[in-house]
Design a protein around this nucleic acid. Structure first.
Length: 562
RNA sequence: GCGCCCGUAGCUCAGUGGACCAGAGCAUCUGACUUCGGAUCAGAGGGUCGGGGGUUCGAAUCCCUCCGGGCGCGCCA
């Protein structure tokens, strides 16, 4: 994509600055008193009123100022409105005041037209913004251990994490996508033992992975690996487990790429130990007095930071816990220069959030920059019956299977439109049935329809007008669509700021609805009226760009025809 | 028992301090193609926002409490 700097400033941001300036102006001119030193000055908030009669944009600033300024909100609003009319004549048309103290604003038609022209020149960059404080971010997600293929249980984390990354990037942050996997330790040995048993045709051990994929692995095991692993003195289960987990890991990578989810860094747990990150981190904690030995184990004094209990770092048998690797990993990540770490974890991991953040704080990092986002569990249901998922027992539906039935675009939409922290029921039969009715097709259809119109225009020899100046001022139907188009950067700004990414699907739906309404009311290509057609084509082209960019943000295709 | 998350229309879910914001999609019902794509559009019915208290000029949204559901509380990962 193009440099975000080339993207136009969101109109709302421009209005926010104008209102801020008007406030300062009114204060300087004596129309409003200054905020007393002991009071907190409110932040200027601009939103879109639900009722169109209230204008395009509104601010509750006067309501917020009423208390600190000890003035009636209506009087404050009048003072602000007066200053604003002088401050932003080009940007705003009508500025009015409504009880109990709202400041209502209507955009100047010229400002809307100019913004639409900017949309078309920004093209792919439209919708990319720069948040107040762009950061270098590390986002770790999925991170399923390579002891079996990804299941539908991993789907939500994958989609939610990928969407968050896309949104953060569109907001101007620099994002590294990271997958952490456990390639050593007990589970890998169990996997190795399971594969070895299959290879030998033996009964599986009590604790074993039982899925069909274990059988496949046993068949695919190269003869050289097998003979090396079974040589006298060789660590058979460890060696086979290592081979198997790497093979599974690359399969996971392929599955994720099929979903359009790519990682920049694949980090192995073993490498954190091998490269000394874990030892150094523990020493760092020890130097700070946060470590003690008891009952043969090494403990981190997590209770210092409010945890319920202290946490074991090294077991009595000398083996480090998973938590030890987590601590080392934090230092390793920060050593790469990230400002902020984000972890997307399943809700079942919430018990481990505090200890990792506590350890980070103990090592001298700002715990606010170690952020865990918990994704609620998906309850998979088939015909009303819960489908139990167990990799060990071999009872699971793989991610690949789900997507073969539901489709990547529909699945991305389904998970992207829901708040990550809300638990959801996912009925697989219903999803298959409903995949044809997924709202994603509604949005894609709008895009395809626009593409069709543009093709039609080429046939008719009518090109979109280079500029919309003066073209939509007195057409309310066009104005409604234009306003919707111009909201994309605001949606991105909001989502990148608070991480509430589900607003993007809502926006895409609303934009599609606006376009369909426009299509209904205005004939775009009319050979009898080339001038009007050219202007309408330009507007529709801007809608195409907004729709396509919103879908791109969601990782969903924008088809030219369906 | 303690901690975290959740409870909004028949179903799946948005909205989490503002003014017709009580919404969307699906489902149900009624309409609309001799005109740019009907995978569309117009309209209808349907909810004491789990219950109750409180804070506020204003509460689905914040606080308390109760009820209901999920998850966690390992020298597992």
């Amino acid at each position: 994509m193009t440099d975000p700097a080339t993207a136009p400033e969101p109109l709302r941001a421009a209005v926010r600055r104008a209102v801020q300036a008007a406030w300062e102006r009114a204060t300087a001119e004596g129309a409003l008193p200054a905020v007393p030193a002991d009071a907190v000055a409110p932040v200027v908030e601009i939103d879109h009123p639900g009722n169109p009669e209230h204008g395009d944009l509104a601010s509750n600033l006067a309501l917020k100022l009423a208390k600190p300024l000890r003035r009636p909100p209506m009087a404050i609003a009048e003072a602000l409105a007066g200053a604003l009319r002088a401050e932003a004549a080009d940007l705003l048309g009508e500025v009015s005041v409504a009880p109990p103290g709202f400041l209502n604003m209507r955009l100047a038609p010229g400002a809307i037209e100019a913004a639409l022209d900017a949309v078309r020149s920004a093209d792919a960059a439209f919708g990319r913004v720069r948040v107040a404080a762009p950061q270098r971010l590390n986002v770790e997600f999925v991170s399923a251990n390579p002891t079996g293929p990804l299941t539908v249980g991993n789907a939500r984390g994958a989609f939610v994490g990928d969407l968050l990354c896309r949104v953060l990037e569109a907001g101007g942050h620099t994002v590294t996508r990271e997958y952490y996997f456990n390639d050593s330790g007990r589970q890998v040995r169990v996997l190795g033992a399971s594969v070895a048993a299959r290879r030998l045709g033996e009964e599986l051990p009590e604790e074993a992975y039982r899925g069909d994929y274990v059988e496949d692995l046993a068949r695919a095991l190269p003869a050289e690996t097998w003979s090396a692993a079974t040589a006298p003195g060789a660590d058979r289960d460890g060696m086979i487990g290592a081979w198997a987990s790497e093979r599974i890991r690359s399969g996971i990578q392929a599955s994720l790429e099929h979903l359009g989810v790519r990682f920049d860094v694949w980090k192995s747990e073993a490498s954190l130990h091998r490269d000394g990150w874990v030892d150094r981190a523990v020493e760092r904690l020890r130097a700070g007095g946060h470590i003690y030995e008891e009952e043969g184990a090494t403990w981190f004094r997590s209770t210092t930071f409010g945890d319920d209990k202290d946490r074991v770092i090294t077991r009595g048998n000398g083996e480090p816990t998973y938590f030890a690797a987590d601590i080392g990993y934090v230092t390793e990540k920060f050593s790469r220069g990230f400002d902020h770490l984000i972890y997307i974890w399943g809700a079942d991991h919430h018990g481990t959030v505090a200890r990792v953040r506590n350890a980070a704080e103990a090592m001298g990092y700002d715990r606010e920059h170690v952020e865990m986002r918990l994704v609620a569990w998906v309850r998979f249901v088939r015909d009303g019956q819960e489908v139990s998922m167990s990799k060990r027992a071999g009872e699971f539906i793989t991610l690949d299977e789900l997507l073969a039935e539901v489709g990547v675009d529909a699945a991305r939409w389904s998970f992207g439109s829901r708040t990550p922290s809300t638990p959801i029921d996912f009925d697989i039969e219903l999803a298959k049935k409903q995949s044809a009715e997924n709202p994603v097709y509604y949005v894609q259809y709008a895009h395809a329809r626009i593409a069709s119109i543009l093709r039609k225009a080429v046939e008719s020899g009518i090109a979109p007008a280079p500029s919309l100046a003066g073209a939509i001022a007195d057409d309310p139907v066009a104005g409604a669509l234009a306003r919707e188009i111009l909201r994309l950067p605001e949606v991105v700004e909001d989502a990148a700021t608070d991480g509430q990414t589900q607003g993007v699907t809502a926006y895409a739906t609303e934009l599609a609805t606006s376009f369909h309404a426009y299509y209904r009311d205005r004939r775009v290509v009319d050979p009898a009226d080339p001038a009007t057609s050219a202007a309408r084509l330009a507007l529709v082209d801007a809608a195409r760009i907004a729709l396509r960019n919103a879908l791109a943000l969601l990782g969903i295709s924008a088809p030219e025809q369906m």
